[in-house]
Amino acid sequence: MARFDYLEPHSLDEALRLLAEGGDNTRLVAGSTDFLVRWRTGVWRPDSVVCMQHVPGLDYITWNPDDGLSIGALATVQDIEQSDEVRNRYPALAAGATAFAGVQVRNLATVAGNICNASPAGDTLPALLAYNAQCRIVGTGGERWLPLDEVFVGPGRTALESGEILTEIRLPAPAENTGGLYIKHSPRGAMDISAVGVASVVSLNADGACASARIALGAVAPTPVRAYGAEGRLVSQTLDAANIAEAGRLAAQSCSPIADVRSGADYRREMVRVLTERTLSHAVATAGNPPSYDDIRRLAVQTAW
């Protein structure tokens, strides 16, 4: 039990100033869903909390062919899940959003918050990695852009410096013939922390060969990680069953899962193999022809195929 002060900036500048003044014992919150839970259990004990919710103009989700998808720091996971642009162009992210907690938490939690808390099991994170997300990070000295996989440096730790704020996430526009899916492995269809989550996004050439493949794994390493080895095996290849199976094996080899109350390490590794295959197969099958939202929702959390 640690009491804290509540601070409420009404502009980004004010937020940066409050963060700078407060120093290390100040915590920035957006949806506050992770924060309040960890504060109650004594994990986080800040002296003051800077609540971003009333900073105007940060709750956008926009799309254009040049910049791709831009997600403001206050866009909620539910906003993402409900966005037609996301469902049609970034189905793996829609799947990640729909697999995230339950509606009531999705209505509060933000994608930016999910990134900043850097939980290895964050459900939106593998898809963001697989879509090559870039992060706009603002500090008193100006802004910088970092690729998402450089933002994660350890469990719960990011490359953000003290006093910096993540203000936007940008996903480049996918190539024409692209498909993707995220599957969460968990015994329940909602309100669960994933035991394993895998997102795959593939783009195909006109001849059907793989132009690019990005595979990202959740909950099987200290941070969400890309399976670069598996990706490399696929590029320029025909995405047939044998190549996809090989990619699954490589992805499983590349991760470093732990055992906990949810499952054992070996099982997690095996699930990485299976889900990598399944997400890849689905991505290939739906490239350029995104599945319906009902299908995305079902596939994301289906317990048995």
């Binding site: 509540y6 919150v29 506050s32 869903t33 309040l36 009333h54 938490v105 209505n107 509060l108």
Partner: peptide
């Protein structure tokens, strides 16, 4: 909260 269901245990009252 503005018509959307939320878990009120995870909302800071002052916000």
């Amino acid at each position: 909260l503005d018509g959307k269901p939320v878990t009120s245990c995870l909302v800071l009252a002052h916000s």
